[in-house]
Design a protein around this nucleic acid. Structure first.
Lengths: 108, 108
DNA sequence: TTGACATGCAACCAGATAGTTGCATATCAT
DNA sequence: ATGATATGCAACTATCTGGTTGCATGTCAA
């Protein structure tokens, strides 16, 4: 889980996922065009995404095809994000009340 | 948006959000008990969460109360995560087909 | 007012990270 | 076979990050 969060923390890597979202199964060479970076740099980012299981690869001859694996993102959504979803209004209410109380104490 | 992803990348910071989820409005001192780290360490993490607008603070005398702001997490869910939600089955199908094709080419 | 308590600020350090360059390997096409 | 193409591996560097320590500031309570 931590791997996934860490992998998602980099804008370049999120961009790579977006690229694969737009067209799945791209090669390293194709994905390189997207980032302003050497091929090796992109390769490293893809390796991190692969380690986090966000990207799965397969070989076609000398090419390496990259496929988006949406499962980890979905897991995060289910186990983590949605948790903060339902109580959202309550949390906002808490927040609002706290801020108002502060203003009162400061005599505004 | 990048701030939020980066803020979420650290397990300690996610733990702090969990703590505030369990009980909103905790002080720095209270939150310190949770992490195995000096107060200043925790303070830095909270500053990062605050900069990402995931946590909002207010003062009560010499104490600083921390409140969870679920909005940025929700934004990520809406603008980013859910994008990968609907096409999930299609992506998995692509992946499955690609892997099978590879196995065929390798003669398994 | 004085001591205890809660937090803030700044300097510093070790390890992680992002990116590079250079070279090696494997595959395709002629 | 040979040259071009696609990728892999390793070493190196600069910067970012997570954490520390030491001291300063502000607030409460007697």
């Amino acid at each position: 889980m931590d791997d996934v969060f860490k992998a998602l923390a980099d804008p370049g890597r999120r961009d790579l996922l977006d690229a694969l979202f737009e067209r799945n199964g791209q090669t390293l060479g194709e994905l390189c065009a997207r980032l302003d970076m050497t091929r090796q740099g992109v390769s490293k980012h893809l390796a991190i995404l692969e380690a986090a299981n966000l990207v799965v690869t397969t070989r076609r001859g000398r090419e390496k095809l990259h496929y988006l694996n949406p499962v980890p993102i979905n897991d995060i959504a289910e186990r983590w994000i949605n948790k903060y979803d339902e109580p959202r209004l309550q949390a906002l209410a808490d927040l609002k009340r706290a801020l108002e109380t502060t203003r009162e104490r400061e005599g505004r």
